[in-house]
Simulated scan of single mutants.
Amino acid sequence: MIETDVLVIGAGPAGSTAARYAALGGADVILMDKKSEIGSPKRCAEGVSKKGLAKVGVDLNPRWITKEIDGIRLVSPNGTDVWLTQEEIELPEAGYILERKVFDKYMAMDAARAGAKIKVKTLATGLEKVDDGYIVHTESMGKKEDIKAKIVIGADGPECHVARWAGMKPTTKAKEMESGIQYEMVGVEFEREGVIEFYFGSVAPGGYVWIFPKGDDIANVGLAVLAHKADKPAIEYLDEFIENCPYTKNAQPVELNVGGDPVGGMPKKMYDDNLLICGDAAGQVNPLTGGGIISGMTGGMYAGQVAAEAIEAGDCSKKFLKEYDKRARDDLKHEIDKYKKVQEYMLTLDDAELDNIAEAFQDVNFEQISTTELVKSLIKVSPKALLKLGKLL
């Protein structure tokens, strides 16, 4: 049997960050992933903020940056668009479009450099609680293998098998799991380069369509829908959009990505004796945008730090590990709760109301690009939004 202080299950950005910080804290760490290639297949539109990367201690590397974001374009159902680019406003630091297949590998490499051991093509098949931790049953390179850990960190995505096996309630209800589907496409046309585009309304019920440029004529074109709001599969909405959108109708797909996106917020409990969960498995996702790379890495950072502290203290009890829950909530909960309310409000709007908001936005002088700034402006132009959301900001 293999033994370690900390076992991180899932080598996405959240898991690799947890492994890195646990190793930096002096713990013996194993980071495992079921895939043969970390980062592939991607389940992500690949956008991140510059400030977010700095927050979790990631140094920029041009190998995993495909495009710097120069602004955003919001498009209502009737085609009314709102441009927020350097031509309209003075841009603060915005962000980047990543190449996740490279980025995820580099995050795992950073964990390895910090001292973590990495096991690829290693699938967790179950957990067994023992007095001083967990025994995790795995299939590694076709062989059954057990790993005993004093602390297990579940960073295994929206499926959250680790939490379920440990008896913790699932993070997200079925009605709060968005169905996402995306093509990486070539031959996409842009009015302005480097601008990420969002299309709202009945083109993607319960979510939105995105076009994220990746340089030249390449872009991620995808959407997310809520099943209880949709009357057909997500791929049918996407194919219909691509066929009708002038910017994508002549483009060709070179890759298809699918996956669930948990937008229900963080669960009541993200820890137990010898156990922590982070990232998508812990609902550390912005419910309004569906973005979870930086928030998941933030959760992973706190999980790794607290795990290392617990190992050093010789106390892996839930009483000690509750500190992770506190740090993660202090940092993430306010934003997640706030944008959950905005998301719920957006779900009440029909296409005509979205068009009216886009028309009203034409006369708004935006000071900067941020989700908060957009919500503030929404409250200014919509009496209904003021009534529903006025107390948020």
Rank of each mutant, 00 (worst) to 15 (best):
A303H: 04
A303L: 07
N356M: 11
G71I: 02
G314Y: 06
E255T: 01
K229H: 12
T348F: 00
D273E: 13
G215L: 01
K144S: 14
G126D: 13
T66F: 09
E46K: 04
M141L: 13
W83Y: 12
V186L: 14
L24P: 01
M346D: 00
V162R: 03
N274D: 14
K376E: 15
G15H: 07
I65D: 10
S202R: 06
N257Q: 12
H334P: 00
F241Q: 01
K232Q: 15
P383T: 08
A19D: 10
A27T: 01
C316R: 06
A112R: 06
M32K: 03
G283I: 02
G142N: 10
A166C: 07
L24E: 15
A45M: 03
D216L: 03
Y199M: 01
G201H: 02
D146S: 10
A14D: 08
P13F: 13
M32A: 14
I293D: 14
K268E: 15
V263Q: 13
L354S: 01
T66P: 00
P41T: 06
K117I: 04
R329F: 09
E68G: 06
L332V: 04
K340V: 01
L226M: 12
V130D: 15
D363H: 07
F361C: 08
G279T: 00
A166F: 05
A94M: 12
I72R: 06
C316M: 11
T17C: 15
V58W: 10
S382Q: 04
V225P: 04
V136M: 13
G207E: 03
K384W: 02
L276R: 02
Y339G: 11
H161A: 14
P213C: 12
L288R: 05
F320R: 12
G57E: 10
R43A: 15
K55G: 11
L74S: 03
K322F: 12
K380F: 00
